[in-house]
Design a protein around this nucleic acid. Structure first.
Lengths: 223, 223
DNA sequence: TGCCCGTATACTGTATTCAGTATCCATCAG
DNA sequence: CTGATGGATACTGAATACAGTATACGGGCA
């Protein structure tokens, strides 16, 4: 007996729809003014409305979409205040992850994180999306490595909101490149093994990110 | 024209079901070994299966329920490791809330929080459930007052998981009473206006809570 | 011309129906 | 007596059908 268990873990169509919508938002296939109608999406995907509805509801529950007054769902617009809140929440999650990592102080973690940073910092394509993916990967690996699944779930949750809000789309490419290089300092802070150093390092880093963000939002608003 | 807008914000049956199930779990009407079957619940509530399904799916997505191998949903069982993870996640959220409050340093917040602590610490009924409600109320007001809605959502999310896992049911009543009195120190730490004091205070407090929890889990496991 | 009202339309929420799949049990062969 | 096998059962996921409600538009009246 050497057969692979191909347990097809209970496919649920709604999950695919969920992911596709999220991807479409990230790729800007779904813009700020588009309204998502259950019937239309169902037709497009050639499935029934039920799983589409489930996915939309979930995205609404997660704060990505809102119900439009004239029917359908739309991307939720975000004020600068709310952007700040999202960054604060990220700081909560990622700061704690850094703290836990510092306390664990496991060289294997350090090496892994460094490796990911080095890999992701070498972008081949210099688009905003590429930057975003790299940045996310780096931040995610920190939370992943701290070994707390609940924390990781929260991380994905809050980042999905940020993505959907197109929070990053407005930032200038030059700022991005500059910002991407700052991650190794984070790794160093974690490697001190002192959470009183690691945690504030994350706070500061995310704060810098927010400053960029706020500037971008203002610029766009001014335009 | 002075008519109150009684806009009945789009009732959704699934939301009611969601809340009812959660309440039933908290009240131990739904126990560890019960399996929740869509059809049965729908019959009980005298509605169709669709909204029931939606509620169950949402509870699964939030980590409260799992699909049972022999069909239906069940409460998710939690290992001690996972209990630790939940407490760590709480620390992330509530620690950040305390930090933000310390930085804001608004006397109105301080007064409000003190008031809630004083009110909730005076339990009239000394059941485990009463303790739980009071404890939750106190912790929640801290997050509420920091003014970050996303953080508050995360708070509710993680506490719902804990509730559903009956994480608190096992703790001894005596420990609870002792633990409940410790909250005013938290308020004091926040009122220093120094987040380097407020945040660790929360960490320690939650750590103490986990110690109680771990002891209770062990005792139960031993029994 | 501007406002109000009725009707049409569009979209959602809920119910019902259909189909597939995994588990459990009873029966039969070794 | 044990283990496999076939079928019944139970439950879910998806599709379809139904009904209600809010918005938008166009016509009538001041």
């Amino acid at each position: 007996m050497a057969l692979k268990s191909l347990k097809t873990e209970r496919r649920r169509l709604a999950d695919d729809v969920y992911q596709q919508i999220l991807d479409a938002i990230l790729a800007s296939d779904i813009g700020m003014d588009d309204q998502l109608v259950q019937e239309k999406l169902a037709a497009e995907l050639e499935i029934s409305r039920t799983p589409v509805r489930e996915a939309l509801l979930r995205l609404e529950q997660e704060g990505v979409l809102v119900t439009s007054p004239r029917g359908g769902f739309m991307l939720r617009r975000v004020s600068e205040d709310e952007a700040k809140e999202i960054y604060e929440t990220r700081a909560a999650i990622e700061g704690q992850a850094a703290r836990l990592l510092a306390i664990k102080n496991d060289p294997a973690d350090h090496a892994h994180i460094r490796a990911v940073i080095e890999r992701e910092e070498n972008l081949t394509t210099h688009t905003v999306q590429a930057y975003f993916a790299a940045n996310r990967a780096i931040h995610r690996v920190i939370v992943e490595r701290c070994g707390n699944r609940h924390l990781l779930e929260m991380f994905d949750n809050i980042w999905n909101r940020a993505v959907a809000l197109h929070l990053f789309a407005a930032i200038d490419e030059i700022d991005l490149a500059e910002s991407l290089g700052a991650h190794m300092q984070l790794a160093q802070a974690i490697e001190t093994g002192d959470w009183r150093i690691a945690m504030p390092a994350v706070f500061d880093h995310i704060d810098d990110g927010f400053t960029l963000q706020a500037r971008a939002l203002k610029a766009r608003h001014g335009a």
